[in-house]
Protein backbone atom coordinates (compact mmCIF):
# COMPACT_ATOMS: atom_id res chain seq x y z
CA UNK A 1 0.00 0.00 0.00
CA UNK A 2 1.22 3.53 -0.77
CA UNK A 3 1.37 5.92 2.21
CA UNK A 4 -1.57 8.25 2.68
CA UNK A 5 -2.68 10.92 5.09
CA UNK A 6 -5.94 10.30 6.95
CA UNK A 7 -8.77 12.41 8.27
CA UNK A 8 -12.22 11.84 9.72
CA UNK A 9 -14.99 13.71 7.96
CA UNK A 10 -17.20 15.96 10.07
CA UNK A 11 -20.02 16.70 7.61
CA UNK A 12 -20.87 15.34 4.14
CA UNK A 13 -20.41 18.76 2.51
CA UNK A 14 -17.03 19.30 4.19
CA UNK A 15 -15.93 15.85 3.08
CA UNK A 16 -16.93 16.61 -0.51
CA UNK A 17 -15.07 19.94 -0.43
CA UNK A 18 -11.94 18.29 0.94
CA UNK A 19 -12.12 15.54 -1.67
CA UNK A 20 -12.27 18.14 -4.43
CA UNK A 21 -9.46 20.28 -3.01
CA UNK A 22 -6.87 17.77 -1.78
CA UNK A 23 -5.04 16.10 -4.67
CA UNK A 24 -5.69 12.37 -5.09
CA UNK A 25 -8.10 12.10 -2.16
CA UNK A 26 -10.52 9.19 -1.71
CA UNK A 27 -13.48 8.53 0.55
CA UNK A 28 -13.50 5.38 2.65
CA UNK A 29 -16.49 3.80 4.39
CA UNK A 30 -16.68 -0.02 4.55
CA UNK A 31 -13.31 -0.21 2.82
CA UNK A 32 -13.88 -3.79 1.65
CA UNK A 33 -13.26 -2.93 -2.01
CA UNK A 34 -10.96 0.09 -1.68
CA UNK A 35 -8.45 -1.51 0.71
CA UNK A 36 -8.29 -4.64 -1.41
CA UNK A 37 -7.40 -2.45 -4.41
CA UNK A 38 -4.96 -0.32 -2.37
CA UNK A 39 -3.03 -3.41 -1.32
CA UNK A 40 -2.64 -4.27 -4.99
CA UNK A 41 -1.72 -0.63 -5.77
CA UNK A 42 -4.57 -0.43 -8.24
CA UNK A 43 -5.92 2.41 -6.10
CA UNK A 44 -3.18 4.70 -4.73
CA UNK A 45 -4.86 7.59 -2.89
CA UNK A 46 -2.58 10.13 -1.17
CA UNK A 47 -5.30 11.20 1.25
CA UNK A 48 -8.14 9.19 2.80
CA UNK A 49 -11.32 10.75 4.14
CA UNK A 50 -13.04 8.43 6.62
CA UNK A 51 -16.81 8.82 6.36
CA UNK A 52 -17.78 6.26 8.98
CA UNK A 53 -18.55 8.74 11.78
CA UNK A 54 -21.03 10.69 9.62
CA UNK A 55 -24.71 10.45 10.49
CA UNK A 56 -25.68 8.63 7.30
CA UNK A 57 -26.50 5.18 8.63
CA UNK A 58 -30.27 5.35 8.99
CA UNK A 59 -33.17 3.97 6.94
CA UNK A 60 -36.14 6.33 7.03
CA UNK A 61 -39.61 6.56 5.53
CA UNK A 62 -40.01 9.37 3.00
CA UNK A 63 -43.06 11.65 2.86
CA UNK A 64 -44.22 10.04 -0.42
CA UNK A 65 -44.34 6.55 1.09
CA UNK A 66 -40.89 5.48 -0.07
CA UNK A 67 -37.68 4.78 1.78
CA UNK A 68 -34.43 6.72 2.16
CA UNK A 69 -31.38 4.54 2.79
CA UNK A 70 -28.38 6.33 4.27
CA UNK A 71 -25.13 5.96 2.34
CA UNK A 72 -23.46 4.25 5.31
CA UNK A 73 -26.20 1.66 5.95
CA UNK A 74 -24.40 -1.68 5.82
CA UNK A 75 -25.48 -4.39 3.41
CA UNK A 76 -26.50 -6.50 6.42
CA UNK A 77 -28.68 -3.79 7.95
CA UNK A 78 -30.23 -3.01 4.57
CA UNK A 79 -31.15 -6.65 3.94
CA UNK A 80 -32.47 -7.09 7.50
CA UNK A 81 -34.64 -3.97 7.55
CA UNK A 82 -38.32 -4.81 8.09
CA UNK A 83 -39.74 -2.58 5.38
CA UNK A 84 -37.11 -3.65 2.86
CA UNK A 85 -37.99 -7.30 3.53
CA UNK A 86 -41.74 -6.76 3.32
CA UNK A 87 -42.05 -4.15 0.57
CA UNK A 88 -38.79 -4.22 -1.41
CA UNK A 89 -38.01 -7.93 -1.12
CA UNK A 90 -36.00 -8.04 -4.34
CA UNK A 91 -33.46 -5.70 -2.71
CA UNK A 92 -33.09 -7.77 0.44
CA UNK A 93 -32.69 -10.91 -1.70
CA UNK A 94 -30.09 -9.30 -3.96
CA UNK A 95 -28.00 -8.05 -1.05
CA UNK A 96 -27.82 -11.42 0.71
CA UNK A 97 -26.91 -13.07 -2.61
CA UNK A 98 -23.64 -11.12 -2.62
CA UNK A 99 -20.32 -11.48 -0.80
CA UNK A 100 -20.00 -13.12 2.66
CA UNK A 101 -21.49 -12.33 6.05
CA UNK A 102 -18.29 -10.60 7.17
CA UNK A 103 -18.17 -8.41 4.05
CA UNK A 104 -21.87 -7.52 4.21
CA UNK A 105 -21.36 -6.40 7.82
CA UNK A 106 -18.85 -3.80 6.60
CA UNK A 107 -19.83 -2.97 3.02
CA UNK A 108 -22.08 0.07 2.70
CA UNK A 109 -24.94 1.03 0.40
CA UNK A 110 -23.00 3.83 -1.33
CA UNK A 111 -19.81 1.79 -1.46
CA UNK A 112 -21.68 -1.03 -3.16
CA UNK A 113 -22.83 1.40 -5.88
CA UNK A 114 -19.29 2.61 -6.62
CA UNK A 115 -17.39 -0.68 -6.24
CA UNK A 116 -14.99 -1.47 -9.07
CA UNK A 117 -15.20 -4.35 -11.51
CA UNK A 118 -13.68 -7.75 -10.65
CA UNK A 119 -12.39 -8.25 -14.21
CA UNK A 120 -9.17 -10.26 -13.73
CA UNK A 121 -7.32 -8.02 -16.18
CA UNK A 122 -8.24 -4.95 -14.11
CA UNK A 123 -6.78 -6.73 -11.07
CA UNK A 124 -3.58 -7.88 -12.82
CA UNK A 125 -1.30 -4.83 -12.85
CA UNK A 126 1.02 -6.54 -15.36
CA UNK A 127 -1.73 -6.36 -17.98
CA UNK A 128 -2.95 -3.36 -19.92
CA UNK A 129 -6.37 -2.11 -18.79
CA UNK A 130 -8.16 1.00 -19.95
CA UNK A 131 -9.94 1.33 -16.61
CA UNK A 132 -6.73 1.14 -14.58
CA UNK A 133 -4.50 3.02 -17.02
CA UNK A 134 -6.56 4.90 -19.62
CA UNK A 135 -5.23 4.38 -23.12
CA UNK A 136 -3.15 1.30 -22.26
CA UNK A 137 -5.51 -1.12 -24.02
CA UNK A 138 -7.76 -3.97 -22.94
CA UNK A 139 -6.15 -7.35 -22.26
CA UNK A 140 -9.56 -8.91 -21.62
CA UNK A 141 -10.55 -8.58 -25.28
CA UNK A 142 -9.05 -11.71 -26.81
CA UNK A 143 -8.28 -13.05 -23.34
CA UNK A 144 -10.22 -15.30 -20.98
CA UNK A 145 -13.70 -13.82 -21.11
CA UNK A 146 -16.10 -16.39 -19.65
CA UNK A 147 -17.11 -14.10 -16.72
CA UNK A 148 -17.12 -10.86 -18.71
CA UNK A 149 -19.80 -8.69 -20.25
CA UNK A 150 -21.85 -9.50 -23.33
CA UNK A 151 -23.73 -6.25 -23.83
CA UNK A 152 -23.08 -2.54 -23.35
CA UNK A 153 -19.39 -3.23 -24.02
CA UNK A 154 -17.00 -1.23 -26.20
CA UNK A 155 -13.72 -1.79 -28.01
CA UNK A 156 -12.03 -0.34 -24.92
CA UNK A 157 -13.60 -2.50 -22.18
CA UNK A 158 -15.74 -5.60 -21.63
CA UNK A 159 -15.78 -5.59 -17.81
CA UNK A 160 -18.98 -6.25 -15.84
CA UNK A 161 -20.42 -4.34 -12.93
CA UNK A 162 -20.16 -6.91 -10.10
CA UNK A 163 -22.93 -5.63 -7.81
CA UNK A 164 -26.03 -7.62 -6.89
CA UNK A 165 -27.58 -4.76 -4.88
CA UNK A 166 -27.49 -2.35 -7.83
CA UNK A 167 -29.47 -4.76 -10.03
CA UNK A 168 -32.35 -4.68 -7.55
CA UNK A 169 -31.98 -0.90 -7.14
CA UNK A 170 -32.37 -0.57 -10.92
CA UNK A 171 -35.54 -2.69 -10.90
CA UNK A 172 -36.87 -0.49 -8.07
CA UNK A 173 -36.10 2.79 -9.91
CA UNK A 174 -33.94 4.04 -7.04
CA UNK A 175 -32.46 7.54 -6.97
CA UNK A 176 -28.92 8.29 -5.80
CA UNK A 177 -28.75 11.46 -3.68
CA UNK A 178 -25.47 13.35 -3.45
CA UNK A 179 -23.78 16.46 -2.13
CA UNK A 180 -21.26 18.32 -4.27
CA UNK A 181 -18.09 20.12 -3.13
CA UNK A 182 -19.92 23.49 -3.31
CA UNK A 183 -22.54 22.16 -0.89
CA UNK A 184 -25.32 21.81 -3.48
CA UNK A 185 -27.23 18.55 -3.69
CA UNK A 186 -28.67 16.56 -6.55
CA UNK A 187 -30.59 13.36 -7.25
CA UNK A 188 -29.36 10.97 -9.95
CA UNK A 189 -31.74 8.28 -11.26
CA UNK A 190 -30.06 4.88 -10.92
CA UNK A 191 -30.48 4.37 -14.67
CA UNK A 192 -28.08 7.29 -15.25
CA UNK A 193 -25.73 6.58 -12.37
CA UNK A 194 -23.49 3.93 -13.95
CA UNK A 195 -21.86 4.80 -17.25
CA UNK A 196 -21.22 2.49 -20.18
CA UNK A 197 -17.49 2.27 -21.00
CA UNK A 198 -17.46 3.74 -24.51
CA UNK A 199 -14.01 5.24 -25.07
CA UNK A 200 -13.65 6.20 -21.38
CA UNK A 201 -14.06 3.03 -19.28
CA UNK A 202 -12.24 4.67 -16.35
CA UNK A 203 -15.27 6.98 -15.90
CA UNK A 204 -17.69 4.55 -14.25
CA UNK A 205 -20.35 6.76 -12.67
CA UNK A 206 -22.07 10.12 -13.03
CA UNK A 207 -20.35 11.43 -9.89
CA UNK A 208 -18.33 14.63 -10.36
CA UNK A 209 -14.92 14.93 -8.64
CA UNK A 210 -15.50 15.17 -4.88
CA UNK A 211 -19.24 14.51 -5.14
CA UNK A 212 -20.40 12.32 -2.26
CA UNK A 213 -23.37 9.96 -2.12
CA UNK A 214 -25.45 10.72 0.98
CA UNK A 215 -28.40 8.35 0.47
CA UNK A 216 -30.36 6.21 -1.93
CA UNK A 217 -34.09 6.85 -2.24
CA UNK A 218 -36.63 4.20 -3.15
CA UNK A 219 -40.01 5.27 -4.54
CA UNK A 220 -43.10 3.98 -2.79
CA UNK A 221 -43.48 0.22 -3.06
CA UNK A 222 -45.02 -1.14 -6.26
CA UNK A 223 -46.24 -4.44 -4.78
CA UNK A 224 -45.99 -7.57 -6.90
CA UNK A 225 -43.87 -10.64 -6.41
CA UNK A 226 -40.19 -9.91 -5.81
CA UNK A 227 -37.60 -12.41 -7.05
CA UNK A 228 -33.80 -12.28 -7.28
CA UNK A 229 -32.15 -15.29 -8.86
CA UNK A 230 -28.39 -15.54 -9.16
CA UNK A 231 -26.57 -18.16 -11.22
CA UNK A 232 -22.91 -18.64 -10.31
CA UNK A 233 -20.12 -21.21 -10.28
CA UNK A 234 -20.52 -21.91 -6.52
CA UNK A 235 -23.66 -22.06 -4.40
CA UNK A 236 -22.44 -19.16 -2.26
CA UNK A 237 -19.83 -16.42 -2.15
CA UNK A 238 -19.22 -15.99 -5.88
CA UNK A 239 -19.98 -13.31 -8.44
CA UNK A 240 -22.87 -13.81 -10.83
CA UNK A 241 -22.58 -15.34 -14.26
CA UNK A 242 -26.13 -14.08 -14.69
CA UNK A 243 -28.56 -12.69 -12.15
CA UNK A 244 -32.14 -11.54 -12.61
CA UNK A 245 -34.03 -9.11 -10.40
CA UNK A 246 -37.74 -9.12 -11.15
CA UNK A 247 -40.93 -7.62 -9.79
CA UNK A 248 -43.92 -9.37 -11.33
CA UNK A 249 -47.52 -8.18 -10.90
CA UNK A 250 -50.54 -10.50 -10.71
CA UNK A 251 -51.55 -9.43 -14.26
CA UNK A 252 -48.19 -10.62 -15.61
CA UNK A 253 -46.69 -7.18 -16.16
CA UNK A 254 -43.51 -6.30 -14.36
CA UNK A 255 -39.91 -5.16 -14.31
CA UNK A 256 -36.71 -7.04 -15.04
CA UNK A 257 -33.08 -6.03 -14.46
CA UNK A 258 -30.16 -8.31 -15.22
CA UNK A 259 -26.71 -8.56 -13.61
CA UNK A 260 -23.47 -10.28 -14.56
CA UNK A 261 -23.78 -9.42 -18.24
CA UNK A 262 -23.03 -5.72 -18.62
CA UNK A 263 -20.96 -2.79 -17.32
CA UNK A 264 -24.07 -1.50 -15.53
CA UNK A 265 -27.32 -2.96 -14.18
CA UNK A 266 -29.02 -3.99 -17.41
CA UNK A 267 -32.64 -3.00 -17.79
CA UNK A 268 -34.48 -2.19 -21.02
CA UNK A 269 -37.95 -0.96 -20.12
CA UNK A 270 -39.25 -1.69 -23.65
CA UNK A 271 -38.38 -5.39 -23.17
CA UNK A 272 -40.77 -5.55 -20.20
CA UNK A 273 -43.75 -5.10 -22.52
CA UNK A 274 -42.89 -8.62 -23.78
CA UNK A 275 -43.41 -10.21 -20.35
CA UNK A 276 -46.85 -11.67 -21.23
CA UNK A 277 -45.14 -13.48 -24.15
CA UNK A 278 -42.61 -15.15 -21.85
CA UNK A 279 -38.91 -15.28 -21.13
CA UNK A 280 -37.67 -15.80 -24.67
CA UNK A 281 -39.43 -12.72 -25.99
CA UNK A 282 -38.18 -10.58 -23.12
CA UNK A 283 -34.60 -11.89 -23.37
CA UNK A 284 -34.49 -11.31 -27.13
CA UNK A 285 -35.43 -7.66 -26.70
CA UNK A 286 -33.25 -7.21 -23.61
CA UNK A 287 -30.17 -8.60 -25.33
CA UNK A 288 -30.64 -6.87 -28.67
CA UNK A 289 -27.23 -5.61 -29.79
CA UNK A 290 -25.26 -8.04 -27.60
CA UNK A 291 -21.62 -8.61 -28.54
CA UNK A 292 -20.59 -11.80 -26.74
CA UNK A 293 -17.30 -13.65 -27.19
CA UNK A 294 -17.14 -17.35 -28.01
CA UNK A 295 -16.46 -18.01 -24.30
CA UNK A 296 -19.35 -16.03 -22.83
CA UNK A 297 -22.05 -16.41 -25.49
CA UNK A 298 -23.63 -18.97 -23.14
CA UNK A 299 -24.78 -16.03 -21.03
CA UNK A 300 -27.37 -15.13 -23.67
CA UNK A 301 -29.16 -18.48 -23.27
CA UNK A 302 -28.58 -18.32 -19.53
CA UNK A 303 -30.40 -14.97 -19.28
CA UNK A 304 -33.40 -16.48 -21.03
CA UNK A 305 -33.38 -19.61 -18.86
CA UNK A 306 -32.83 -17.73 -15.61
CA UNK A 307 -35.65 -15.38 -16.52
CA UNK A 308 -37.89 -18.36 -17.32
CA UNK A 309 -37.14 -19.77 -13.85
CA UNK A 310 -37.81 -16.38 -12.27
CA UNK A 311 -41.17 -16.03 -14.04
CA UNK A 312 -42.12 -19.54 -12.91
CA UNK A 313 -41.16 -18.60 -9.31
CA UNK A 314 -43.23 -15.45 -9.59
CA UNK A 315 -46.28 -17.42 -10.71
CA UNK A 316 -45.97 -20.04 -7.97
CA UNK A 317 -48.31 -19.54 -5.01
CA UNK A 318 -46.58 -17.82 -2.08
Amino acid sequence: MKPFTFERATTPAAAAATAANVPNAKFIAGGTNLLDLMKLQIETPAHIIDLTKLDLDRIEDTSDGGLRIGALVTNTNLAANGRVRREYGVLSRAVVAGASGQLRNKATTAGNLVQRTRCPYFYDTNQPCNKRRPGSGCAAIGGVTRQLAVIGVSDACIATNPSDMSIAMRALDATVETVKPDGSTRAIPIADFHHLPGATPHIETALAPGELITSVKLPKPVGGKHVYRKVRDRASYAFALVSVAAIVQPDGSGRVAVGGIAPKPWRIEAAETELPRGAKAVATRLLDGAKPTSENAFKLRLVERTLAAVLADAKAPA
Binding site: R8, G31, T32, D36, D50, Q102, N105, K106
Partner: peptide, 29 residues
Protein backbone atom coordinates in the same frame (compact mmCIF):
# COMPACT_ATOMS: atom_id res chain seq x y z
CA UNK B 1 -5.33 -14.23 1.95
CA UNK B 2 -5.17 -10.64 3.29
CA UNK B 3 -7.89 -9.74 0.74
CA UNK B 4 -11.14 -10.57 2.50
CA UNK B 5 -11.66 -13.86 0.69
CA UNK B 6 -10.72 -16.54 3.24
CA UNK B 7 -12.12 -15.37 6.59
CA UNK B 8 -9.07 -16.43 8.66
CA UNK B 9 -8.80 -12.87 10.04
CA UNK B 10 -12.42 -12.70 11.26
CA UNK B 11 -12.85 -10.80 14.54
CA UNK B 12 -15.82 -9.21 16.27
CA UNK B 13 -16.06 -5.41 16.33
CA UNK B 14 -18.76 -4.19 18.69
CA UNK B 15 -20.13 -7.74 18.45
CA UNK B 16 -20.24 -7.76 14.62
CA UNK B 17 -17.97 -10.12 12.64
CA UNK B 18 -15.74 -8.51 10.03
CA UNK B 19 -12.59 -9.31 8.07
CA UNK B 20 -9.88 -7.51 10.07
CA UNK B 21 -7.60 -7.49 6.99
CA UNK B 22 -9.95 -5.18 5.09
CA UNK B 23 -10.25 -2.37 7.59
CA UNK B 24 -7.80 0.28 8.75
CA UNK B 25 -6.93 0.26 12.44
CA UNK B 26 -7.26 4.06 12.60
CA UNK B 27 -10.92 3.72 11.59
CA UNK B 28 -11.71 1.94 14.87
CA UNK B 29 -11.50 4.78 17.36
Amino acid sequence: CDHGQCGACTVLVNGIRINSCLTLAVMHE
